[in-house]
């Protein structure tokens, strides 16, 4: 399982299958291994060239930011059992309900790419944040 590169187009999703009459919309990162460092991951829809300079405020293509609280590595090794617990793959859910609904209403598109951009707290891009996951899905309910 390779790790993510910032700016990667990680999935293409068929928006026409979702409608707009949903209670909740989530971006789900499946089989995700929590990273060593902390960073923010911005999620864009239909914005294939997104990078750290791509606006978030007022940008209908911006769905939201998932913040990762890194396990940390700079203070020596953790005990092996603890380390294994930290590295167990998990599922992370990002609530994108309002922005996804608004985008679908306006865009009227079918298959659109999802692009993710990793930035530090100050908005500087992190090209290789050390994040790996096995799947990304858009789920409405």
């Amino acid at each position: 399982m390779a790790s993510l590169r910032s700016g990667a187009q990680v999935a293409t999703v068929p928006l026409d299958k979702l409608g707009t009459d949903f209670e909740r919309g989530e971006v789900r990162f499946d089989g995700l291994t929590l990273p060593g460092r902390s960073f923010n991951l911005r999620v864009f829809v239909d914005e294939p060239g997104a990078n750290a300079q791509t606006p978030t405020e007022g940008n209908p293509h911006y769905l939201g930011t998932q913040s990762f609280f890194g396990a940390g590595t700079e203070h020596g090794e953790l005990d092996p059992g603890a380390r294994n617990r930290q590295l167990e793959p998990t599922q992370i859910k990002l609530n994108v309900t309002d922005k996804l609904r608004a985008f679908i209403r306006q865009a009227g598109k079918k298959n659109v790419p999802i692009t993710v951009v990793a930035v530090d707290r100050d908005g500087n891009e992190i090209p290789d944040p050390g994040l790996s996951f096995e799947g990304l899905s858009l789920v409405t309910s």
Binding site: R24, F39, S67, F69, G70, G72, H75, N95, R121
Partner: peptide
């Protein structure tokens, strides 16, 4: 199931905002 991850996300951002040792699980 919806509440816990929705609360965890700003919680994570607060850890990053404080920075330093608060910014990592192992040291916070």
């Amino acid at each position: 199931d919806a509440f816990s991850p929705d609360l965890e996300n700003p919680h994570n951002q607060l850890h990053m905002w404080v920075g330093g040792d608060m910014g990592s699980v192992s040291t916070a």
